[in-house]
Amino acid sequence: MFKYLRFSVVVVALAVSGIVPAGPLGIGSTATPEMIAGWDIDIRPDGVGLPPGQGSVAEGELLYEAKCASCHGLFGEGEGRWPVLAGGEGTLDTLHPEKTVGSYWPYASTLWDYIYRAMPYTAPQSLSNEEVYSIAAYVLYLNDIVEEDFVSNKETFTQVKMPNEENFFIDNRPDVQNGRCFENCADPSTFKIVTTINGVTPTGHFKEDSGVAANHYEGNPSAASGSELRIEKSVTKVALSKEALLGRGVYDKACQTCHNSGIAGAPKLGDVSGWVDRIGQGMDTLNDHAINGYQGADGVMPAKGGNMALSDDDVVNAVAYMVEASR
């Protein structure tokens, strides 16, 4: 009783003086091991977090085809624009780097962790440990990182080394150093002004009544040419040729319905991969197809896009615009 009284006095004194007792404030409840076990799903590269269980490449193949291939493709090549999982080795230092599990990911543990926590996309955390071991093994197999007879469990999975692991390094920015110059800081005669590629921006909000996605405003985004700026040279170096600039207006009126959206197999404006083979046929062929019509494997190009009021020159200019905006 005496002890209790003395304790109370101390507490009252603290409260009156406004002093907060050092140490924990005593807020919250103990997180029990059971609570933690249910939520603690993370896996680390050193294998911490990997649960008991195992799965084989063969089992993974069946599961992958049932649960993953509809988006990621049968061989990890990616359906449509869903993520590519396999391939891409040797591309990281090229102009078209392909970052896949095999070519890019530094740790196999990330694959296990991510499949468990977030896949399949529409049913996260629905896979059993065995299913994740199996699917992860199969994705590694698709990337030639494990053999066909690989059976993954905590021990074997932790031993998997990923080919790109050594190529990551800690952020070393700031990596560039600009100065704070105020006068004559650049030589305007060397300026090369590059404008935007029209048709890829959903700029409907520029105009009050324009609700069309990917519709763009009118106007001529030519480079600045004022003599006060002393950058006349820029005019001759804009990204689009004169023909293409003329063709842009034709495109807006006659071509964009199909070529903005890809209707009827039309190659989309700005879709480099969709255009590269077509451009490879040469401008004469492209112009011929556009003016006279063409039946291809992917779809049909009506003569002059079905708008016979267009002159041949109009069509040629529109083709120039699409080609220049798509490579």
Binding site: D42, K99, Y104, S109, Y114, N167, F168, D171, R173
Partner: peptide, 24 residues
Amino acid sequence: WHHREETSKYTDLMPDGRSRRFTW
């Protein structure tokens, strides 16, 4: 932990094929 959003994504591939990580 080197999870997906700090390895596969949100890392910075440099021209030499190497990559920056933890570019916070």
